[in-house]
Simulated assay, not measured.
Amino acid sequence: MNNIDIKSYLMKQIPLDKLYIKGDNNHIKITAIGKIFHGMNNIQKQQVIYKPLTKYIIEKKIHAISINTFTLEEWNKKNINK
C-alpha cells in the first residue's frame, strides 16, 4: 500500500481537513488535521486514524506508523509559531 492509497483511503473513511503522509511501507508518518478531533485527548485522536488502518497492519501491508493529529485550531497555532 503506497502513500497515495493510504491518503485516499483515510480521506474516504474520516472527515479530515488536511492529511499528510510521508515515508514508505516500513514506516509511515501520518499528520492529520480536522474538526473531528475537537474535544478528544491524544490517544483518542490517534485511535481515529489507527482503527481503519488496522487490517492493513495485520496483513503486513503497512509495517509501522506514527501519527500526529491536530484540530484546525491546534494546527493553525502550531504553524503561526514557526
Rank of each mutant, 00 (worst) to 15 (best):
K77P: 05
K35P: 01
M11I: 09
T31C: 12
W75G: 01
T31Y: 09
T69Q: 03
K35D: 15
K78W: 11
N81L: 14
P15I: 02
I33Y: 01
K35N: 15
E59K: 09
L10G: 02
Y50I: 05
N79K: 05
E74V: 04
I62Q: 01
I30Y: 02
K61Q: 15
I67G: 01
P15M: 07
K82T: 08
N3F: 03
K12A: 10
K78D: 07
N42P: 11
E59N: 11
I33F: 01
N2V: 04
H27K: 07
I65D: 00
K18G: 02
Y9M: 07
K18D: 14
Y50Q: 09
I33R: 04
L16C: 06
T71H: 02
N68A: 13
I80M: 10
N81A: 12
L53A: 05
N79G: 02
N41Q: 08
N76A: 09
N2S: 09
Q13Y: 06
Q44L: 04
S66M: 12
K61I: 01
K55Q: 11
E73S: 09
H27F: 15
A64D: 10
K82N: 15
S66K: 09
H63D: 09
T71L: 02
G34Q: 05
K60I: 03
Y56L: 02
F70K: 02
I14M: 00
H38E: 13
A32I: 15
N81Q: 13
Q44R: 05
K61S: 11
V48N: 01
I57Q: 03
N25I: 08
K45P: 00
M40Y: 12
E59Y: 07
Y9K: 00
L19M: 10
K45C: 11
I43A: 07
K12G: 05
K12R: 09
Y50A: 03
T69F: 03
Y56F: 15
N68P: 03
N42Y: 11
N3G: 05
I28T: 05
E73C: 04
T54R: 08
Q44A: 08
G23F: 15
K29M: 08
D24Q: 06
I80G: 01
F70P: 02
N26P: 00
I28V: 15
G34A: 08
E74H: 04
K29Y: 13
E73R: 08
S66I: 14
F70M: 07
I30T: 03
S66R: 10
Q47T: 15
N42G: 11
D17W: 09
L53W: 00
N25K: 06
I58Y: 09
K45F: 04
I14Y: 10
N76E: 12
K29R: 10
S8D: 06
E73T: 14
I43R: 05
I4C: 01
N79W: 08
I33C: 08
W75V: 04
Q47D: 13
T54A: 06
P15S: 14
T31D: 10
M40H: 08
A64F: 13
Q44I: 04
D24A: 08
Y9L: 07
N2A: 08
N68F: 14
L10I: 07
M1E: 09
Y50V: 03
P52M: 09
K18Q: 13
H38L: 07
L16K: 02
E59F: 04
T54K: 11
Y20E: 13
K51E: 12
V48Q: 02
I30L: 07
I67Q: 01
F37W: 10
I67Y: 02
I58T: 04
T69W: 00
K35T: 15
I14P: 01
A32P: 01
K12D: 15
E73K: 12
